[in-house]
Computed example of a mutant assay.
Amino acid sequence: MVKIEFAPINIPFNRRMQTIAVLYWVFTFLFLAQCCMGVFVLAVLSGYWHFAALYGLWLYLDWDTPQTGGRRCAWVRKWTIWRHFRDYFPIHLIKTCDLDPKHRYLFGFHPHGVLVAGAFGNFCTEYTGFQELFPGLTPYLHVLPFWFKFPFLREYAMSAGLVSCSKKSVTHVLSQEGAGAISVIVIGGAEESLEARPGSLTLQTLHRKGFIKLALKHGAHLVPVFSFGENELFNQLENPEGSVIRNIQNRLRKIMGFALPLFHARGVFQYSFGVLPFRKPIYTIVGKPIVVEQNASPTTEEVDKLHQRYLDELNGLFEEHKAQYGITEQGHLVFK
């Protein structure tokens, strides 16, 4: 029988606010899409169908916005709830060198984790100091196009700085006039989330070269980013390669375009089970840029060469900082 560890009653108010903030964030990932769709359907079936019709027209006219830079809102990115969200873990953004705002950049973010907490906290809110660390640069976090198919949710997602991860979307960001735009891509994607569990150092990278081609075509400097602690936030049901659970998850991923990791961690009033992440610190290290010369038609050999250099730089970034953030000398990245 599992012993339940209940949270103490006399928890400081600021910690309660942090828990509420993270609960809200988890809710948006797991249930907000269904709620938004439900509201839209209810509006259609009720006396407010004309509002639904107007919004439907808006969707038709605005459908491509998630692929053309989105529509960020500084007010949403500065909501106080995101400060509490940052402090829950807490999340730290650390730079290793200055980035010249005269250039465009493509950040490769690793690892995916279960819910990409580090990427959201650092690039979709204003509370980890991104603007102070990298003045003149604007990050765009690319996520699955799936999230922009839901009414109302798409507006909310774009307001935080989220855009589609389609080729058209990345091309738009990296083609903006002037400079200072950053495409932030979680390279491992949905497949990597199925590997996310404490202690995991497995990255889905060997066969992911699309971002390399885009960086070459647009002359965007490549920057490896490793987020220590990302995989420590949740436990996950055992799903080794070849298992029934993993086969079902892979099949659903291919059908729906996103993965369904069976994760668990802690609850609101107890620490033994639930869907809230553990309070584990996240340290997101932004590495040094790999200078990329623009090449409109890169060859396979050129793509492979730059891809290997990127992996070497990513591995070097990890090895340089791992001891400082709790990884043993025996811990090494595994590229799949």
Score class of each variant (00 low, 15 high):
206 L>K: 15
294 Q>V: 09
211 F>W: 08
7 A>P: 03
300 T>E: 10
138 T>L: 13
333 L>Y: 05
157 A>P: 07
34 Q>T: 03
145 P>H: 07
210 G>L: 05
294 Q>N: 09
237 L>D: 01
282 I>F: 03
6 F>E: 11
97 C>S: 12
233 L>E: 00
158 M>C: 12
91 I>L: 06
78 K>F: 10
200 S>A: 15
285 I>Y: 04
98 D>Q: 15
5 E>G: 14
205 T>Q: 06
124 C>W: 02
260 L>T: 12
277 P>F: 04
175 S>N: 12
207 H>N: 15
139 P>G: 13
131 Q>W: 11
149 K>D: 09
99 L>Y: 04
222 L>N: 03
164 S>F: 07
213 K>L: 09
174 L>D: 02
269 F>P: 00
272 S>R: 13
188 G>L: 05
76 V>G: 07
38 G>I: 11
211 F>V: 12
275 V>R: 02
155 E>I: 14
298 P>V: 01
186 V>C: 04
203 L>Q: 06
1 M>K: 12
329 E>M: 12
285 I>R: 01
153 L>M: 06
326 G>K: 12
273 F>R: 10
262 L>D: 02
98 D>A: 10
221 H>Y: 09
247 N>Y: 10
325 Y>G: 02
62 D>L: 09
44 V>L: 12
204 Q>Y: 12
142 H>P: 06
129 G>L: 02
52 A>M: 05
170 V>A: 09
34 Q>P: 02
146 F>W: 14
148 F>K: 03
18 Q>W: 05
123 F>A: 06
204 Q>W: 07
222 L>R: 00
137 L>D: 03
256 M>G: 08
324 Q>I: 09
91 I>V: 08
104 R>A: 03
175 S>M: 08
297 S>D: 14
208 R>H: 15
186 V>T: 08
211 F>S: 10
141 L>D: 00
249 Q>H: 08
331 G>R: 08
142 H>F: 13
59 L>E: 07
259 A>E: 05
132 E>K: 13
305 K>R: 11
230 E>I: 04
146 F>I: 08
316 G>H: 15
35 C>S: 13
57 L>F: 14
172 H>Q: 08
228 F>M: 03
136 G>D: 10
190 A>W: 07
100 D>W: 05
17 M>P: 06
150 F>A: 06
257 G>A: 15
129 G>Q: 03
77 R>A: 06
69 G>S: 09
187 I>Y: 15
54 L>D: 05
172 H>W: 08
2 V>L: 10
102 K>W: 01
146 F>N: 13
